[in-house]
Design a protein around this nucleic acid. Structure first.
Lengths: 208, 208, 208, 208
DNA sequence: TATGAATGAGTATTCATTCAT
DNA sequence: TATGAATGAATACTCATTCAT
């Protein structure tokens, strides 16, 4: 009873605490994934690193998969936040500039948290088919295709389906590879060159 | 009577038995990897599926990793066998035909056993850095670059390092994605179109 | 209501539970070692006998060896507690009484838990050189020697190193053997006789 | 049939081969016990080191225990061979010389193959109660006692049972310890001193 | 709600022993 | 008789998950 009075203000407090706990758990999961790999990321370890009890972990997440899924989702959101507005702009640009923008944005996206991105793409596919976190997945594919259609007149390609597939795959792969495997290339100059080169590839392919 | 002519030397008999066991184990491993994923591939399970005792598994392989490594190696060999001779030919061809050949070969390679290839590339990276089974890995990168150099006069690109990186990544990604995620595209006609399209992309990029 | 006065802090409750678990594990280990020997003491078996899950065992001990080591340490502590004060007294006594005391103490020590002592000395040496639980090991050797030196004038022996080695070895062996292999001798009367006899052996050797 | 004719001569040949095989197995077992410890001495390993198939091992020994037992027996025989005649002589000697001889013989016995002796005494008691290979076990105890009785008049001790126990235990322990743990003492000079010292201990105890 | 002790099915690996050749 | 491939019960250890406090 006496508790009732305390409930309201406390509730807010505990909601904050909840948020903090969830945050700590996601943070811990991400950190462990990055620094020690998927196999070391046991629920107990995660809880420990988060400074929280396993019990609490299960209060907020139904299981390990859900936790990892949440980390993925959070990462995706971060990327989206980074990318969204810029992508919108590309929509209205002529092909040349659009392509440059697209590639640049893809690089940017991959750079949000490359180490985490790496683990997430390489080690996670096991987590119950958590369908690939491709920066340019089906969704982007559709978007890209629509854009091409809107510029059909300027293009030399016929089969836009095919062209979209080739382009989106190329953008994703080149930026992904560039960011992950070839950290030597990552001087800003080199990176700019790569962006330019890839954009050029696409432009020459799409236009004449 | 049963002894017959004693034609076959004993050793041969056991060697055959060994070979059969090893074969069964590799087969079982591959099957499980494909159908149930890396995590379900426990040594006991593999032995069971192979119709062999765990003990036998450990007689031929020091552990699970070795088994998976053997499966990978076997798959690589199959791909190499498919690819090697054709690649050699490409060496002497003019850019246009060389690119077509290259893409075609990459597709062919990915088609050897697509499901297995998928698991092997997506789920395996953990096995002690079993350096990527990329159809066009570092090795192919070097080869490709050398080829470009031999044709330098005909090309419009300057930075062959960069160009090689972009091209090899593209070929690998497009064929990989095509074979794995888009099995709808896989009518032979569509596939030919894809090859043509990708080759075209590369050619327009490399030449004028 | 059930909450009562909340007198006992939570931590204490769990700590007691922990202590109980650890105790049960040590008890079970000791019991199995005594009744079934080292080889039957598998972790699963120990946990079972302790009425605890294997998981719990590994929560408190990094492995089987640690468990056995803990049992040894516990036994050593029990012996030390038994022996320590009495040994201190011997230090100031004349040779005759000191020897009697020493032998008596050694017997006492071996009687703390003879069956366990037996297993621990005979079957354990494998546990990563868990240096011997000799009642009179190197440490006691040094002590004994120092004592002899302090009484040098009264002694007929020259080489105190050698004499110490012979004496310490004798005390340890006679008491060990007496307690373990010859439980028939263990009527208190016989035991007293043995102590007297051994003391006599030492005295006659050391003095004239 | 035709075989029958070949049987007889062959049999001898194969008997020799048998002996050789058995010898190789015992040799291998001993070597592994000494160099790698009891736990590494698996039947397969033993067979391998012996240059023989596991099958053959089981042709000659019903199991691992039997093999180890045979090694023990062989070691005992070697010791006996070394000791027997000398022990017989002691029988007729006066106490002083008899004790010296006894201690000397015990040292000699322990020196036959100290490393093997070590493993056999320290690690083997597990082999189904392979009752102690004590160089001076119950058997020696009886012998010693009989000797004392034959010299009763010369002795100052009353309780020959007790005295025998003390003496035999002492001889065994001192020589065992000396040979095993204190290899520093093992210069021949030091060893002679030890023998003399121990004999002295016994003599002073038994006589006046 | 938080805690963390407890759980126990699951996993890799070993080794004495058998048996078809 | 010799061989060595095959066996499978046994063992140490892990980790997602539960539940009494």
């Amino acid at each position: 009873m006496a508790r009732k009075l305390l409930t309201k203000p406390r509730k807010t407090a505990s909601q904050e605490r909840s948020r903090a706990t969830v945050g700590a758990l996601l943070e811990a999961t991400a950190r462990i994934l990055v620094k020690e790999g998927f196999d070391k990321a046991s629920t107990n370890r995660i809880a420990e690193v988060a400074g929280v009890s396993v019990g609490s972990l299960y209060q907020y997440f139904p299981g390990k998969e859900a936790l990892v899924a949440a980390v993925i989702e959070r990462h995706r959101q971060e990327i989206l936040q980074t990318v969204r507005s810029e992508l919108a702009k590309a929509w209205t640009l002529p092909v040349e500039q659009a392509m440059r923008k697209l590639v640049a944005v893809a690089v940017k996206a991959h750079r949000v948290d490359p180490r985490l991105h790496h683990v997430l793409t390489e080690q996670i596919p096991r987590v119950g088919r958590l369908e690939t976190l491709e920066t340019f997945g089906r969704e982007n594919f559709a978007l890209f295709r629509t854009y091409l259609e809107s510029r059909r007149d300027e293009l030399r390609v016929d089969d836009l389906e095919l062209a979209s597939f080739v382009c989106v795959t190329t953008i994703e792969a080149v930026t992904h590879n560039a960011v992950l495997h070839h950290s030597k290339l990552l001087t800003d100059a080199r990176m700019d060159a790569l962006v330019e080169e890839t954009a050029c590839l696409l432009i020459r392919y799409l236009k004449g």
